[in-house]
Design a protein around this nucleic acid. Sequence first.
DNA 1: TTGATTTATTTCGGCGTCCAAAAAAATGTT
DNA 2: AACATTTTTTTGGACGCCGAAATAAATCAA
Lengths: 419, 419
Amino acid sequence: MLKKANSDLVRRQNRGLVLETLRHHGPLARISLGHQTGLSPASITSISGQLIDEGLIHTITEDEDAAAETKRGRPQTRLSLNPGATNVLAISIYVDGVEMVFADFSGTTRPPVMLRLDTYAISKDDFGPRIAHEIRYHAKKLGLPLASIKRIGVAVQGVADSIKGEISWSPAFRARDIPVVEPLQRLLDIPCSIANNANMIAEALIATDRNRYGGTTAVVFMGHGIGLGLILDGAVYSGATGRAAEFGHMNHIPDGPLCRCGRNGCLEAFSADYGIMRMANDRRGTDFDVHAPVQDSDMRELEMAAEGGDTVALNAFVRAGEVLGFGIARLIALINPQRVVLAGPGTRAYGLMKDSIGEALRRGLVHDLRKNVEFEVVPYGKDMITTGTLVETLRHLDRDVFAMGPRGVVMDFAGRKIA
Amino acid sequence: MLKKANSDLVRRQNRGLVLETLRHHGPLARISLGHQTGLSPASITSISGQLIDEGLIHTITEDEDAAAETKRGRPQTRLSLNPGATNVLAISIYVDGVEMVFADFSGTTRPPVMLRLDTYAISKDDFGPRIAHEIRYHAKKLGLPLASIKRIGVAVQGVADSIKGEISWSPAFRARDIPVVEPLQRLLDIPCSIANNANMIAEALIATDRNRYGGTTAVVFMGHGIGLGLILDGAVYSGATGRAAEFGHMNHIPDGPLCRCGRNGCLEAFSADYGIMRMANDRRGTDFDVHAPVQDSDMRELEMAAEGGDTVALNAFVRAGEVLGFGIARLIALINPQRVVLAGPGTRAYGLMKDSIGEALRRGLVHDLRKNVEFEVVPYGKDMITTGTLVETLRHLDRDVFAMGPRGVVMDFAGRKIA
DNA sequence: TTGATTTATTTCGGCGTCCAAAAAAATGTT
DNA sequence: AACATTTTTTTGGACGCCGAAATAAATCAA
C-alpha cells in the first residue's frame, strides 16, 4: 500500500539523499552533488545550508589536492560529512569475546577494543549490563562523551531477533533469548539495534560495490555455523520476525547426523566446523559433543592434514563441500540470485571443497538456473562485519534521524536559522 | 539508495493512494477518503477534482442504500472508480487452453472466454500472434474497442521471465522461451506483462486479506508442477531476472527419481501430479514418461483409490507429502515466513498428505522456526489466478499510469482544467 | 593591470503541493 | 424559520523544488 506524501517527505528524502551521497562519494562540491542527486543547484544550496547550520556537514578548507588542479572559473568548495557531528559504535560478538569499534559520523574508526569474555558461560541477563558497563568505560577512556554516541549496532553469529532486540540463539552462548537492545538502551540511553553477522557482511559488500552486489545476492557465511545474508533488490532482507535466514539449519538429508539444533541432517551438521571435525574424527558421529566449540587451531591442523594427503581429513572437507553445494543449489532454486558469495573463516578450506561444491551444483540444479549465477569467494576478515555494522548504523542515522531535521527551528528561505 | 523527491512525486503518490484506497474500500465519501489516506479534506477535494475531470472516478448518484440512513448534516457524496475509464485483460494459460477475462477499471469482469488450444503442440513463434488474434476477435465481439484496453496481464504455470516477457519453460508447452509480451505489444499496441501462476495467486491473497497475507507469506502451488509465490514485506517478490522461484526444482534427495527438468531428485519429481502417478504405477520409475501431461481424471481416480484403502496409491500420496514437507521445511529455514499457504488443484489430496507433511516438518525443522509459522490450505479455484492477474494489472494502472496525471493540461487551484 | 571569460554558488521569484481555518452547502431538529 | 450538524469547497499561507538572473571568485589574455 502506498503512503501519504507531503513536503515533509520530500525534505526528509532529499536531505537523506544528500547525506548518503556525501557518504558514498566522499567530499563533493555543491555542483557535483547536484549532478549525483539530480537536485538543482538552488536546492543543493538550500539543503546544504541547513545541514551546515546543524553541524552535520561542513565545507572543506584545507583542500589542497583538489585545488591543485588549476582550472578557470570560481573554484569549487567541497562539502563533506562533519566527523564531529556524532559518534557511533559497532559491536561484534565472538565466541571468545566482544569487539567494540567506535567511529565518527564520517565513518572513521578508532582502533578496535577487544574484550575477552567467556560468552559461552555468561548468563542471559548478565550479558547486556556487562556490555553496557564496558561501553561506558571505554567511551570515557577514548574521551567520547556517552551523549555523543547516537547509535549502537550489534552483530552476532546465529539467530538475532532484530524486533525483540535479542540473541535468540548463537553458537557463542549457552544461554538463549539474551536481551541486548533493551539493557543497552536502558542503561546508556542510546538507540541500539542487533543483527546477524552474515547480514552485516552483506551490508559491507553492498557498500563496497553496489553494482556488483546491489541486485540479488546470497552471502553464505561459513564458520562455527553456516549463516546466510540475503540481498534482495539491493537491500538486505531480514525476514518476517526480523530474524535472519537460518540457512545452516536447512535440512539436507532426512535422518542425517545430529545437529546442534537437536534435529538431524541439517546443512550445518555436515559443513560447519564441528560437522567437518566430526566427520574427520568419527564417521558414525555417535559420541561426538556437537555443542563443544571447535578451536580454530584444530581446524587449521585438519586443513593441513587434508592438504597433506590425509584421505579421511580430505574426505570430510569434500563431503562438507558436497552438502554445502546442495544447500546452495536449493537456495538458488528458491531465490534465483544473480550472485552467490562465500565468506567467513570456513572459506580458508575452499580449495578443498571447490570441486565437490561444483559437482553438487551440477547434480542438484537445472542448468537454466545455474548458468545465470555468478560465484565468488571473498577473503575473510573480521573487519567486514564491523564495516557492515557501521554502514548499517550510519545509514540509519542518515535516513531516519538526521534526515528529519531539527524541530522547532525557524529558518529563512534558504534554510538558515533566523533566531 | 534513496531517490530524489519533489512535488511530482508527491502528486503521483497521493493520486495513486486515492485510487488504491477507492479500489480497496469501494465507494467512499471524500471525508472517509481523508480518514483512510491521512490526507486533509482540502487535499482530497483537490485530488478527487482532478481525477473526476480526467474521468477516472465519478460521484455516485443513485446512492440509495447509503442515503437511506437519515443523518443530520450535509449528506456525503460518495466517490467511486469509474468503470468506463478503461478496460484490462487477464489471460491465464493452461495445458488445455487459454482463458481470457476482460474487466473494466473497477475490476468488474466479463464472463471468461475459454479458448481451446493445444498449447503443448504450438510452436514458439506461433503462440503470441495466435493469442493476439484471439484478443482482437473477442474484444470486438464484446464491443470493447482495442484502444480502450490499457493493459494485458498474462499468467502461466512454470518459469515466466517477466523482464524478457517470455515463457522460459512451462509444463503447458513443449516449446521453450516463448515470446509473449513482445508480439502482443507489437500486434495490438497494448502494454503487457507476464507472470507466474503462483505469484498471481499470491497477489489474489494479498488483495483478499492484507493483514493476513501482507507480511511474509509463502504460497505453494501444487498441480502439474510445484510452484511458489513469495510475499516479502507485503509485496510479491519476483526474483533477480524477473523469474519466479523454482521451488519445484529444488533438490530433495541427490540422485532421486528423474524430474521433467532432466535432473534427479527434485521436489516435483515426488510431489507433482506426475511424480505421484509414477510412484503409484511403478515404484522404480524406470519406464515412465515424465513429459506426458497427467490427466486430471486419472489423478481423481488415484485419489479415490487411496481414499478407498489402496495401499500403493495411498503410499504415493504419503510420500509426496513427506517430500513436500521437507521442501517446505527448507523454505522456512531460508525465508522464515509468517505463513505458508497451499493452493492449486493438488490440494484436493491434502487430506492424504497432511500427516506426512506435518511429520516431515517436525523432522526437518527446528521447533523455534516451526512454531512461528501459520499453515493453511486454500480451496482452489482457477479464478484466483485471474483475480490475482487483474489485481496486479489494475494496481499497475493505479500507481504507474494514472497516478502520473495528464500532461500539458492547465489546472486551476483545485486541479480543475481551465482550458 | 585590467577586462573578458569561465565556473560555482546564491538569490529571487514562481510553481505545485499540502494543510488549517473559514466559508459555504445541504440536510435534520426544534 | 432559526439553529445544529456534517460534508465539501474556498482561501490564504507554508514548504519545498526549480529556472533564471545575479553574484562571486577564480583564470586567461592583452
